[in-house]
């Protein structure tokens, strides 16, 4: 079966959109942080924390939507830690972010082991079911691809719309973008750069954690250690690919997910003629190539990575 045929198959697109969902959450979250001028390398760990937190909430008897809320809260709390260190104290954003990733990943595994010291197979929960919307679901192609997903996919698209609206159409978004371009311009207009950046990092981190929670609450029905598997780092690359624009972030997430879906299909069909690692590698090779091509004309937020210290010349 050729790739062309694959692209015409509805099932392929259903898988693509499903796999793009956590990436879209993560990329939007990272984009919000970076637009305010803060690189958040804690994303990989924050997604792991959301993954574990969401699963845990349901495992301990909570509702699915409660789990989404709890994951967001965990993410926001980790974002607050990142913001305190990088915004208030002006520490290195790279080092702090990597530290957050290590802390949050390890805490997630630790909490899992504390909760289930003897489990050999991860216990299952009942995840979000695919939606069954009368009418909408029976539209050809779009029905299954968009409305046959779990509600979290629609939530991701809603988050995209809200992010774009807030960034470009509200005073808060204007201030956030300007804090990432020239913090002095914001401070001299009587706004607090620290407050804006802290809020942006917390909101972005909450979105990342919801992206992580998608893995346990919708894509799969159990938690296992190492589940995020580098998706956070992919989101960092996708932000550059997207040139810090929400609309392009959707495109990037879909493109990467499509490569991943193609890779899985081809791998199944080609058998073992080629080592399977080669297929696994494909989406990452794509992301490197896309980065090289796109980032050549990417316009970074001018004040990304630059801490703002009040009263300093």
């Amino acid at each position: 079966m050729g790739v062309l045929e694959l692209l015409l198959e509805t099932g392929f697109w259903v898988a693509t959109v499903r796999m793009a969902t956590p990436l879209l959450f993560g990329t939007l979250g990272e984009l919000i942080c970076e637009r305010a001028g803060v690189l958040n390398l804690g994303i990989e760990g924050i997604m792991a924390a959301g993954c574990m937190g969401g699963w845990c909430w349901v495992y301990l008897g909570g509702s699915l939507w409660g789990a989404v809320g709890f994951a967001a809260a965990v993410g926001a709390a980790l974002g607050l830690v990142h913001a305190l260190l990088t915004v208030r104290l002006g520490l290195s954003q790279h080092v702090t972010g990597l530290g957050i990733t290590m802390l949050a990943s390890a805490l997630s595994s630790f909490a899992f082991r504390m909760l289930l010291p003897k489990a050999t197979t991860p216990p299952k929960i009942t995840p979000f079911a695919a939606m069954d919307i009368p009418g909408l679901g029976s539209i050809p192609f779009l029905g299954p691809v968009l409305f046959g997903q779990t509600p979290l996919t629609l939530l991701a698209l809603a988050a995209l719309a809200v992010t774009a609206w807030v960034l470009y159409r509200t005073p808060a978004g204007l201030a956030l973008r300007m804090a990432g371009e020239n913090p002095m311009a914001v401070e001299s207009q009587g706004l607090s750069v620290h407050a804006i950046r802290t809020a942006a990092v917390m909101a972005g981190s909450a979105l990342m954690a919801v992206g992580g929670a998608f893995l346990t609450l919708a894509a799969f029905d159990a938690y296992y250690i190492g589940m995020v598997n580098g998706r956070g780092w992919i989101c960092i690359a996708l932000v550059v690919f997207a040139s810090w624009r929400p609309g392009k972030a959707l495109l990037g997430a879909l493109l990467f997910a499509a490569f991943d879906a193609v890779q899985m299909r081809v791998q199944q069909q080609a058998g073992l003629a080629i080592p399977y690692q080669v297929y696994l590698m494909m989406p990452y090779v794509f992301s490197i190539v896309a980065l090289v091509v796109m980032s050549r004309r990417a316009a970074y937020p001018a004040a990304l990575l630059v801490p703002f210290r009040k009263g300093e010349r």
Partner: peptide, 9 residues
């Protein structure tokens, strides 16, 4: 205009 309108409008 940055900062001239209430932040949360």
């Amino acid at each position: 205009t940055v900062g001239t309108r209430p932040l949360f409008s």
